[in-house]
């Protein structure tokens, strides 16, 4: 457990910067610092929180924002599924705690370490997860405290900081040329929808669903060709 916690520190430093920026953004749209602490502690999913809050800032629609955030978290079905063997020795309560503190960073680090040494397992995941969990709640709270005392940060490009973060996340999710057509379709259809006056919250859903449809057509055609 201790080894996992120590190995996690360099990645945690990166997450702290990101968490601080998220706290700033959340404070700007009316979350008090303790509300940000509560959200980070209960949700514990960085990219979902950012997407949901960014969405909420533009529309103030709770369900749309929560759905957009949650959809981004669907990858956790796959991430948690890969842990079934590692978690099998734990009690149900420990399992639930471990999956709550498992995030992209500590999951990836644990998988990489385990490939080198099969002894590494639940202890490492919990140790590194506790470091990530405390880093995330603390850095987002500090960001929110700073954000509440600062003037409107939109002028200094805070909104664009998250557009840049999303671009980097997209790079991380890129799986090769097969993504190109669906991604391009989502991009252009969202732009067109917004230009035609569709509210952004719906434009994002229209864009994503059209991309999903195109991806489906391409996959079917490939299967038929094979």
């Amino acid at each position: 457990m201790r080894y996992g916690a120590i190995a996690m520190l360099p990645l945690a430093a990166g997450a702290a910067v990101y968490g601080f920026a998220f706290g700033l953004l959340a404070a700007q749209i009316g979350f008090p610092w303790w509300g940000v602490t509560l959200m980070s502690g209960l949700v514990h999913a960085g990219s979902s929180q950012i997407v949901a809050v960014e969405h909420f800032a533009e529309t103030f629609a709770v369900m749309g924002a929560a759905l957009a955030g949650a959809a981004l978290n669907l990858r956790y079905i796959g991430i948690i599924a890969t842990l079934s063997e590692i978690l099998s020795g734990l009690s149900l309560r420990m399992k639930l705690l471990t999956i709550h503190i498992a995030g992209d960073e500590n999951w990836a680090l644990m998988m990489a370490e385990r490939a080198k040494n099969p002894e590494i397992g639940a202890g490492f995941l919990i140790g590194s997860g506790l470091v990530m969990f405390s880093t995330w709640t603390t850095s987002t709270t500090l960001g929110a405290i700073a954000g509440a005392t600062l003037p409107n940060l939109e002028r200094f490009g805070l909104g664009f900081a998250f557009t840049a973060a999303f671009i980097a996340m997209a790079r991380g999710l890129w799986r090769g040329p097969a993504n190109l057509a669906p991604w391009a379709a989502s991009f252009f259809i969202t732009i067109c929808s917004v230009s035609l006056g569709v509210p952004k919250a719906y434009a994002i859903i229209i864009g994503a669903v059209c991309g999903l449809g195109l991806s489906r057509v391409i996959r079917n055609r490939k299967r038929r060709a094979a």
Binding site: T163, A203, I204
Partner: peptide, 11 residues
């Protein structure tokens, strides 16, 4: 997830 991110950037 990728499609949602791309649509968010576009919006």
């Amino acid at each position: 997830p990728g499609l949602i991110i791309v649509s968010l950037v576009a919006s």
